[in-house]
Simulated assay, not measured.
Amino acid sequence: MPYQIPFEFPHLDPSDDPAEELVEAFELFMELWAKLGSFRAKHQSDRVLTALIDHQRRQLEIGGLLLSLESDLRNDKPDRVSRKEPLHAPSK
C-alpha cells in the first residue's frame, strides 16, 4: 500500500471547505513534506540528517493538525456546536 501524505483531506461538502489561505498552507505543507521525504531518501546513511528530517516532518504534521483544527473551528456552524444531549452518559 503506498504511503499517503498526511495533509490530504476529502471534499465531502463544499460549504465545509477550508478558507483559501488554509488551502494554500496545506499545499505548502504537502510540498515541504514531499521535498523532505525525497531528501531523506537520498541521505539515508547520514544519521544526523535523517534525525533532523524526521524531526522537521513531525513538526509539519503538528502544524498541519493545528491548521486542520483551526479550519474546523472556523467552519463550525451553531447547530453543530450546541448539543441538547450530554456528550457522556451520566454515571449512576
Rank of each mutant, 00 (worst) to 15 (best):
V48Y: 14
F9D: 13
P90R: 12
Q44T: 15
Y3K: 14
P2L: 03
D76T: 11
I5V: 10
V23S: 05
I53G: 08
P90V: 03
L60Y: 03
A51D: 15
L66S: 04
E20I: 12
P6Y: 00
P6D: 01
F9S: 06
E8S: 11
K92C: 09
P10H: 05
L87R: 06
F29P: 06
F39C: 09
L69I: 13
K84N: 15
R40D: 12
I5Q: 09
D76Q: 08
D17P: 11
R74M: 13
G64T: 03
L65R: 03
D46F: 03
D17L: 12
L49F: 15
E85N: 08
A34H: 15
S38I: 14
D79A: 10
H88E: 14
E31F: 03
M30V: 02
Q56I: 05
E61I: 02
L65K: 03
P6S: 01
T50V: 08
R57K: 14
L12W: 05
K92D: 06
L65M: 04
S82Q: 09
F29L: 08
P86D: 02
S68V: 00
Y3I: 12
G64K: 03
I5E: 07
L32N: 10
L52N: 13
L22T: 02
F26I: 00
A51S: 14
K42E: 11
H88G: 04
Q59I: 08
Q4H: 07
P14S: 10
P14M: 04
L28R: 11
R57I: 05
D79S: 13
S71D: 05
Q56Y: 10
E70V: 01
D72K: 14
D17Y: 05
S45W: 04
D17E: 12
D46P: 15
A19F: 13
R83S: 09
A19C: 07
P78T: 01
L52F: 13
A51E: 13
L22W: 00
L49W: 13
Q4T: 10
N75F: 00
N75Y: 00
D13A: 02
S91E: 11
V23L: 09
E61F: 02
E20P: 10
V23W: 00
Q56G: 07
F9T: 12
L87F: 09
L60E: 04
I53W: 04
Q59V: 10
L69S: 07
L52G: 07
R58T: 09
P6V: 00
V81F: 07
E27N: 15
L22H: 02
L22S: 06
A51I: 05
W33E: 15
D72Y: 06
K84T: 06
E61R: 12
S71C: 03
A51L: 11
H88P: 08
E24S: 04
I53T: 13
H43N: 10
R80G: 10
S38F: 05
E27Y: 00
V48T: 15
G63R: 02
P78E: 02
D76S: 15
G63N: 07
